[in-house]
Computed example of a mutant assay.
Amino acid sequence: MRRPIAILGSAVFFVVVPCAIAGLLPWWITRWQFRDPFLGTWVTQAVGVILIVAGLPGLVDSIRRFAVEGLGTPAPVAPTQTLVVTGFYRHVRNPMYLSVLTIILGQGLLFGDWRLIAYGAAFWTVCHLFVISYEEPTLHRAFRGEYESYQHNVPRWLPRLTPWKKA
């Protein structure tokens, strides 16, 4: 796939998928109305803002890397041509899903709404099942030894503190 097409496809994916999952659905659940903060303190709301702000760069960077470095998109119908193992992908294999989860949980804390926390748990469960049943086997078939090495060195969900360096 040519880079301009990959960038356009990734931009469309960003607007359609993560923006809907981390923006439209939380709005639909809460109408972004504040409830009493968790634990009765504004500190939980501040943590929520921090999580939202922390999740955005990981999401944008991951999608950008798929287009610019991988010459593809995050969508299974137009996958990358090369395995992306730079940026946040050096710390964790699924930074895009983790970024979206962080944004969802941040909104749950900000708005004091348990429904968003439950939605975040459901989102993670669906992502985990998708990763183990489709994504990892597909990446293994496409990138064989390169993906195996990456898989053995970079955790699926809990980020490693030091970035992995490809041999």
Score class of each variant (00 low, 15 high):
Ala167Arg: 12
Arg31Met: 06
Phe14Pro: 03
Phe111Asp: 04
Gly145Ser: 14
Leu24Met: 02
Phe143Asn: 04
Leu59Gln: 12
Leu39Gly: 07
Val84His: 09
Trp28Asn: 13
Val77Gly: 04
Ile21Cys: 11
Ile7Gln: 01
His128Gln: 14
Val47Glu: 01
Gly48Ser: 12
Val12Phe: 12
Cys127Leu: 06
Leu59Asn: 12
Arg3Ile: 08
Thr162Gln: 13
Gly108Ala: 15
Cys127Met: 15
Pro76Ala: 06
Asp61His: 14
Ala118Tyr: 04
Ser149Tyr: 07
Ile104Leu: 07
Ser10Phe: 01
Leu25Asp: 06
Leu139Glu: 00
Val77Tyr: 15
Glu136Asn: 02
Pro18Ala: 02
Val100Gln: 00
Gly72Asp: 06
Val131Pro: 03
Val77Pro: 11
Val43Thr: 15
Val84Ile: 00
Ala20Cys: 09
Thr44Glu: 05
Leu116Cys: 08
Thr138Ala: 08
Pro18Val: 04
Lys165Ala: 15
Ile104Lys: 01
Pro37Ala: 07
Ala118His: 12
Lys166Ser: 09
Leu39Val: 08
Phe34Asp: 05
Ser62Gly: 15
Trp28Ile: 15
Arg90Met: 05
Thr44Lys: 01
Val131Tyr: 10
Thr86Tyr: 03
Leu24Lys: 01
Thr80Glu: 02
Val131Asn: 07
Glu148Ala: 13
Ala11Tyr: 01
Leu98Asp: 00
Gly112His: 08
Ile52Ala: 09
Trp28Arg: 15
Gly9Tyr: 03
Trp42Glu: 13
Pro26Lys: 01
Gly48Met: 07
